[in-house]
């Protein structure tokens, strides 16, 4: 059953220099209980998509076009008040940079309890606290740390507490935006495992946003690769990971530490075929400057979606 259906979503930012498109006609869907990874380098628009879904874009962010159908309801059409009831209760978030995601002057427990009691006003405080305690158990934080201040937590604990908070209202979808950046590798792995475990156990749908394709591959059912605001390749984890089609995906994977520990050191990203001053038409492939495989036809024609399997597509003229 489809939980989320995004159609033609375009998001732009109003800047001093004019309007710049951050997400260009993105379409994808997500089944209930499944997980989707959005991968791409920073600035590619993946976080914008995540925020766009919750309508939490900064002031200058404008959703230009498209639909976000969540359980059949278009989130872009409902009122702000209705949207507030969706936030956290239906769709919650795990934030990037958990360090700063906590209000420094409030106790962590209070902040989680607040999230519960906003959406379940009839819950007593004790009941809410009880729920948070259960969740703390789930994310392996000792109960007695519940009412500490954020600065008294370690980085990993903060992130796990964020996860606990994301789970408080039993949402159908969690958007995890770079949940492990700024953590050390061991903690990163613990967190990833935790999310994976919870996702499986509670069968919650997760959108996993990361620049790290390997990590995404470890958790997600589907992978979506973004480049310069466009989705360039979509597919099942195995498909994208094992048989990447788009040149950009390939280059992403090439910089990934393989499972056997051998680093495949084939960084070709710096080589270019195009002259840097070539004016690039917005219709043609955005990766063309860095693309190894691009030919002169790429300069003339817009890229097309190529279907490799029914679940695996790439936006590249050359992919077969």
């Amino acid at each position: 059953m489809t939980l989320l259906e995004v159609e033609n979503l375009s998001i732009a930012y109003q800047t001093r220099g004019g309007v710049s498109l951050a997400v260009d006609a993105a379409s994808f869907s997500l089944e209930k209980g499944k997980s989707l990874g959005i991968v791409g380098e920073s600035g590619c628009g993946k976080t914008t998509i995540g925020m766009g879904l919750l309508r939490l874009l900064p002031e200058n962010g404008i959703i230009q076009d498209g639909k976000v159908l969540f359980e059949g309801q278009d989130l872009l059409q409902i009122s702000e008040d209705e949207m507030r009831t969706i936030r956290w209760k239906k769709i919650s978030m795990i934030f990037q940079a958990a360090m700063n995601a906590w209000n420094p002057v409030q106790r962590v427990g209070e902040q989680i309890v607040e999230a519960i009691r906003i959406h379940y006003p009839d819950y007593s405080r004790d009941r809410a606290v009880k729920e948070v305690e259960d969740l703390y158990q789930l994310v392996d934080i000792p109960r007695n740390r519940l009412f500490n201040y954020p600065h008294e937590y370690s980085g990993g604990m903060k992130q796990r507490a964020i996860i606990a908070m994301a789970l408080t209202c039993h949402p159908d979808l969690i958007i995890a935006d770079e949940p492990t950046t700024a953590l050390d590798v061991i903690v990163q792995d613990q967190i990833i495992q935790k999310i994976k475990e919870i996702q499986k156990e509670l069968s919650i749908a997760v959108i996993f946003i990361s620049h790290d394709i390997g990590m995404v591959a470890e958790v997600c059912h589907d992978i979506m690769v973004m480049y310069k605001g466009k989705i360039v390749e979509v597919g099942k984890r195995e498909e994208v990971f094992v048989t990447p089609m788009h040149p950009y995906t390939k280059s992403l994977l090439s910089s990934y530490l393989t499972l056997d520990g051998v680093f495949d050191f084939e960084d070709k990203a710096n080589e270019t075929v195009c002259q840097p001053d070539t004016i690039i038409d917005s219709h043609i492939c955005g990766y063309i400057q860095h693309c190894q495989e691009a030919d002169s036809s790429c300069l003339r024609e817009a890229p097309r979606w190529q279907e490799i399997t029914p679940t695996h597509k790439a936006l590249c003229r050359l992919c077969k």
């Binding site: 919750l54 939490l56 507030r84 009831t85 969706i86 936030r87 956290w88 209760k89 919650s92 978030m93 934030f95 940079a97 700063n100 995601a101 906590w102 209000n103 420094p104 002057v105 409030q106 902040q111 607040e114 999230a115 906003i118 959406h119 908070m165």
Partner: peptide
């Protein structure tokens, strides 16, 4: 960032202003 967190939690603007942004 924690203001974003508060928004994502579905808090009303007033509550964000008075409970989260204000004291800080």
């Amino acid at each position: 960032d924690y203001i974003l967190t508060a928004r994502a939690k579905g808090l009303s603007e007033k509550r964000i202003r008075n409970r989260h942004a204000g004291p800080n």
